[in-house]
Write a protein that binds this DNA or RNA. Structure first.
Length: 881
RNA sequence: GCCGGGAUGGCGGAACUGGUAGACGCGCCGGACUCAAAAUCCGGUUCUGGCGACAGAGUGUGGGUUCGAUUCCCUCUCCCGGCACCA
């Protein structure tokens, strides 16, 4: 055995063994209950980043632990290979996205393999392979047949200079990222998936996901946003009716709004509609100022965060609708905060009882009419209308025949009265919107449709799937290259055989990632999307990934699985039984603003912190050796744009895979964000070296004086018993920390503590060495899911011929844990005043007497008789005086 | 803006079900080894007072419940994630 820990050699030896033994090939017929552990697959950006290392190490620890517990494990890996970055790289370097992507996959695969993850590489998939995306297209066509996929118009960001659709990410301060042109909104036809059809089920079944983090379930529930309310129809007044060419005062021609607060209906003093609403467009035809306002709204962002924070703007149309009960005319406004394509694109305005309406009314001098008062007496008078809106439930006032009702009763009564007159009904509304999947981009899965001048839109027949994406195009930023490639779009109509044009839109990459977990069970099946092996492996038992995917990816996957279920492809509804959402990897951010141009960011490895007189200065060393004072901007997620990343490959080369893995698992619990620390990495390495050195000393001694005898449990010295107790306590804690709590950091801390105890243990008698042998074996087993390479080698050195990867996880020895005496803490009035030692089976009276006998305790009791004695078994005594 | 999460020594974090606040690691201080340095090993390290035994304060802010609160409840502040075309 080498005296020094040589990580490169150790990594190589362990990885070579796993490779030649085929240790991680998953088989459906192997013994043990199946365990499918999946980490979210990476986008092949070119380099592994620390977030990947963290994600895959967590998954690997759980996989290896389950395997040692006798489970038949599957841990696959693949590539989320379509997407915008490949097109950006193409523009920057003139490389085809396909080549760029496949080169990246090759180098990232090498990096992953260097980290020694227990992955079954024979099941590798890439979503850009036609053998994979064929099934996106196939299922899309099935959905289209059932109306789950349907076509309507949707709003996109349009760059008028490049003549192209922009992703939200490509819009910076309302301008195109390349051209700087003001971005416009455009309505274009798009395909949508009818996820709202499943809204109720997706919401209800969150309750069955008991092994998901509560916060993810809450976020999904809020995202789906079920609300019960009432549709209310406001019939057109004469002016609106004339403009729209419809009858006035009639239920057949009315503006529909949805409200959860029908009890405030009598407080309506305006209605607001979206800029693109038909009434707004009709009114604007005769009103240039209104048209200008509508154009302004159209230029605004479509992002919810922007809509919510931008200044609320509105403009009168001069038109009216009629209140459904009073018949009073209500003015119609166009407002920038009402979104087309959401709800009815119209809302009723009740300034007295809604904060946003209140602000809008104050700004435009609209009347504020109070119709609900507090019923609890907490607010005797309604909040004065010039201060704030009263948004709570209460009792209706000034509401005609509905006055004096509790809000909920008022909603029921008003809904019933509306229904009786054909002007409304109760309805459940979801915040969730249907999923728009059309992208006017090249590097994605083609939507398998053909446009025929005679037959219209025609599906590509199954026999012609997949519609293969040409891989040699290089996008240049203006429009979709597919639309300029006749060899792709020129085709013949499957119906009439005449000349036709192939659809050039591709699918949202979230489609690719919505079912990849199922394909790992049968990546080689060319004839079907999924097969019987899916029944064996799925659902995923443990899913691991970033919290940033808490809503979209996970919700789309849950939806997609239900669609597959309803087509009879799978027999479960929830794809991921247990979910672990890991936190971000953070590092410091340093920047400096040059006189001209963009901010420059400096990598933390090049920045020194200098402290003088309590003032910190941050000084970066530049490539040419010169030094520059920079600004500190706190911690942020590692990213290229902030230049605060750390390359995992350098880390592995310098310290080995185990140090990288150990640091990641030790620095923070998996769900929390993790702060990068070079010193922490060194600490992890030092620990592994100490472990190596300690085992080396033990093994070397055994080689000279002979192997230790069998452990004689009945004949141990107190010191030997104490070490054995620590060993088995640690084993129990590590088992619980990895298996139940998933707090790898505390598991590692416990083993570190144990190694400290082992190095204090100086007994080298035969029984002493037998205790040490057991201690080192358990340390090695406990650490093996986390640092498998060094443990693989140490296990051999400890004299075992069977490879550690195939060894079972041991159970703690109850006999080693038994204790004759306990130490209890004594409190007086809840404050710590002493410690006592009592027999493990001491009764309350004996504990009380021992506590009262403690000298320091007596000082604080000062002769008084305790009023109350609280005993927490095996822990504490509290004397209340 | 809305939804979700977080805040504990000089730093990362521990304290699992209301019961010893600061495990473990980093950093720092002192010592051993060394011609010296690095590495390694040993000891110390929340703050204040005290030679010490020990005492007082202390878990972002302000309040509450309790024999006892980092943990439960209310208030506020700051930081992070998501917001539907980044993945």
């Amino acid at each position: 055995m080498d005296e020094r820990y040589q990580p490169a050699q150790v990594d190589r030896a362990a990885q070579a063994y796993w490779q030649q033994a085929g240790s991680f090939r998953a088989r459906e017929d192997a013994p043990g209950e199946k365990f499918y552990c999946l980490s979210m697959f990476p986008y092949p950006s070119g380099r592994l980043h620390m977030g990947h290392v963290r994600n895959y190490t967590i998954g690997d620890v759980l996989t290896r632990f389950a395997r040692m517990q006798g489970r038949n494990v599957l841990q696959p890996m693949g590539w989320d290979a379509f997407g915008l970055p490949a097109e950006n790289a193409a523009m920057a370097n003139g490389v085809a996205p396909a080549k760029w992507t496949r080169d990246n996959i090759a180098s990232m695969k090498e990096q992953l393999q260097a980290l020694g993850f227990a992955l079954d590489w024979e099941r590798e998939i890439a979503t850009c392979d036609p053998s994979y995306y064929k099934w996106n297209q196939w299922l899309f066509l099935r959905m289209r047949e059932k109306g789950i996929a349907y076509k309507r118009t949707g709003v996109v960001n349009w760059d008028p200079v490049d003549q192209t659709v922009l992703a939200n990410e490509q819009v910076i301060d309302g301008r195109g990222w390349r051209t700087g042109a003001l971005v416009e909104k455009r309505e274009i036809p798009m395909y949508y998936l009818n996820i709202t059809r499943y809204a109720d089920e997706l919401l209800r079944d969150l309750d069955t996901l008991t092994d998901w983090p509560e916060r993810v379930r809450v976020m999904q529930a809020n995202w789906i946003g079920r609300s019960e309310g009432v549709d209310v129809a406001f019939p057109y007044a004469a002016d609106t009716a004339a403009l729209m060419g419809k009858p006035a005062g009639d239920a057949s021609a009315a503006m529909k709004v949805f409200t959860t607060r029908a009890d405030t209906l009598f407080g309506v003093t305006f209605v607001a509609i979206a800029a693109e609403h038909p009434i707004a467009l009709a009114a604007a035809a005769k009103d240039p100022a209104l048209m200008a306002f509508i154009d302004e709204c159209r230029r605004g962002s479509v992002m919810e965060a922007d809509v919510a924070t931008m200044e609320k703007k509105g403009r009168r149309t001069g038109l009216h609708v009629l209140h459904p009960f009073t018949g009073e005319p209500v003015e119609i406004w166009v407002a920038n905060y009402v979104l087309m394509g959401y709800g009815e694109a119209a809302v009723m305005g009740v300034p007295a009882h809604d904060e946003r309406d209140f602000a809008f009314a104050r700004q435009h001098g609209i009347a504020i009419r109070t119709v609900v008062k507090s019923s609890t007496g907490a607010y005797d008078t309604v909040v004065a209308p010039w201060i704030d809106a009263y948004g709570e439930y209460g009792v209706t006032v000034d509401s005609g025949e509905f006055s004096g009702l509790e809000s909920k009763a008022a909603i029921d009564a008003i809904a019933a009265a509306l229904a009786a007159r054909g002007l409304g009904r109760k309805r459940v509304q979801y915040r969730l919107r249907d999923w728009g999947i059309s992208r006017q981009r090249y590097w994605g899965c083609p939507i398998p449709l053909i446009h025929c001048p005679k037959c219209g839109e025609v599906a590509v027949p199954d026999s012609q799937l997949p519609v293969v994406l040409p891989e040699d195009l290089v996008p240049d930023g203006s429009g979709n290259p597919l639309a300029r490639t006749p060899s792709f779009y020129e085709c013949s109509c499957p119906h009439c055989g005449g000349p036709a044009r192939r659809e050039t839109d591709t699918m949202d990459t979230f489609v690719d990632s919505s079912w990849y977990y199922a394909r790992y069970a049968c990546p080689d099946n060319a004839g079907a999307m999924v097969d019987a092996r899916v029944r064996y492996w799925l659902p995923v038992d443990q899913y691991v990934g970033g919290i940033e995917h808490a809503i979209l990816h996970l919700l789309y996957s849950r939806f997609w699985t239900r669609v597959m279920r309803d087509f009879g492809l799978v027999d479960f509804s929830e794809p991921f039984r247990s979910l672990l959402t890991q936190g971000m990897v953070l590092n410091h951010i340093y920047w400096q603003q040059p006189a001209e141009g963009r901010r420059l960011y400096f990598n933390p490895k090049d920045v020194d912190v200098e402290e003088a007189g309590g003032v910190k200065r941050y000084v970066a060393t530049l490539d040419d050796g010169s030094r520059l004072e920079v600004q500190y901007d706190g911690l942020g997620t590692m990213s290229k744009s902030k230049n605060n990343g750390v390359d995992p490959q350098g880390l592995v080369e310098k310290y080995g895979a185990d140090t990288a893995r150990l640091f990641m698992m030790f620095a923070a619990p998996p769900e929390q964000s993790l702060e990068w620390s070079d010193e922490g990495v060194q600490g992890a390495f030092r620990f592994l070296r100490r472990l190596w050195t300690a085992v080396h000393a033990h093994v070397t001694l055994n080689a000279s004086v002979g192997a230790p005898p069998a452990l004689d449990r009945g004949a141990l010295t107190p010191a030997q018993r104490e070490l054995r107790r620590s060993v088995h306590l640690t084993l129990g804690k590590v088992t619980d920390d990895i298996g139940r709590r998933r707090t790898f950091n505390t598991a590692i801390a416990a083993v570190m503590e144990l190694l400290n105890a082992i190095s204090r243990f100086e007994d080298r008698s035969p029984q002493g060495r037998a205790v040490l042998q057991e201690a080192f074996e358990i340390v090695t087993l406990c650490l093996s899911p986390i640092v498998p390479h060094i443990c693989h080698v140490l296990w051999q050195e400890l004299g075992h011929s069977r490879a550690l990867v195939d060894v079972r996880w041991p159970a703690a020895d109850a006999q080693a844990l038994a204790q004759a005496e306990l130490t209890l803490v004594v409190q007086v009035n809840g404050r710590l005043r002493g410690r006592i030692s009592v027999a493990a089976d001491a009764d309350e009276a004996a504990i009380r007497d021992a506590a009262l006998a403690d000298e320091n305790v007596r000082r604080f009791i000062d002769g008084a008789e305790p009023r109350k004695v609280i005993i927490v078994p095996r822990k504490l005594v509290n004397l209340v005086v």
